[in-house]
């Protein structure tokens, strides 16, 4: 997995609440057996017109946001399905950090497995960052995972919380499965005990 340490980049504002996984990546693009190549279809139905042309009003089609690496979004981002295609598409587009007041649980977990940092902040701070993002390409935010701080284009510093284990994995680009495999003895022991206490499983 790619590491996430410190990011300085353009933030795109998406104030709409309840942006769901069908908006992030519609199901027609789930018929892939790969993880890559989904960026071109990120937010497909909002981003493209029915004839396939670009919708110039959509934020990521505006010249100042085409290279955005951070998304500042409305409440409950990523609600809906468990499809990891959503974070795959976000990552493939080039976005590495999403900031909102809240995230759907499965989407939130899926981000960390793909080197994307989702940050939860109170409404006032998301509002402040939304305004900063609305300034466009000259307003670059800094997201520092080690320090757990966001710095706005005006130099204002906003601290954020992140789970210690998830932070450790992101900073070092660690693969969960490898880490869990190291605990095979504990799993073996649990399995042996469960075979006694719940043999019907």
């Amino acid at each position: 997995m790619d590491k996430f340490e410190k990011l300085q980049g353009i933030a795109a504002p998406m104030p709409l609440i309840n942006i769901d996984t069908d908006m992030i990546i519609p199901k027609v693009f789930l018929k892939t057996i790969k993880r890559s190549g989904l960026g071109v279809n990120l937010f497909d139905e909002m981003r493209y017109n029915a004839d396939g042309s670009e919708n110039p009003d959509f934020v990521l089609n505006k010249p100042q946001y085409r290279d955005a690496e951070i998304l500042v979004a409305g409440d409950n981002f990523g609600c809906g399905s468990s499809r990891e295609h959503a974070p795959w598409a976000i990552k493939d587009f080039g976005i590495k950090c999403v900031i909102s007041t809240s995230f759907a649980d499965i989407f939130f977990n899926n981000c960390f497995k793909n080197g994307i940092l989702p940050i939860v902040l109170p409404q006032e701070q998301v509002d402040l960052l939304m305004k900063d993002a609305e300034k466009g390409a000259n307003a670059r935010m800094i997201v520092d995972l080690e320090a757990q701080e966001i710095t706005t284009s005006d130099g204002e510093v906003i601290p954020f919380e992140v789970d210690a284990f998830k932070k450790h994995c992101l900073l070092n680009g660690l693969d969960d499965i490898g880490l869990t495999m190291e605990k095979a003895t504990a799993i073996d022991a649990f399995e042996a005990q469960a075979a006694q206490s719940r043999p019907w499983v």
Binding site: R35, S81, S82, R83, E84, P87, I106, N109, N110, K113, N114, D176
Partner: peptide, 8 residues
């Protein structure tokens, strides 16, 4: 019982 992503 709950849903999980593909990495999970």
């Amino acid at each position: 019982a709950h849903g999980i992503g593909t990495s999970e």
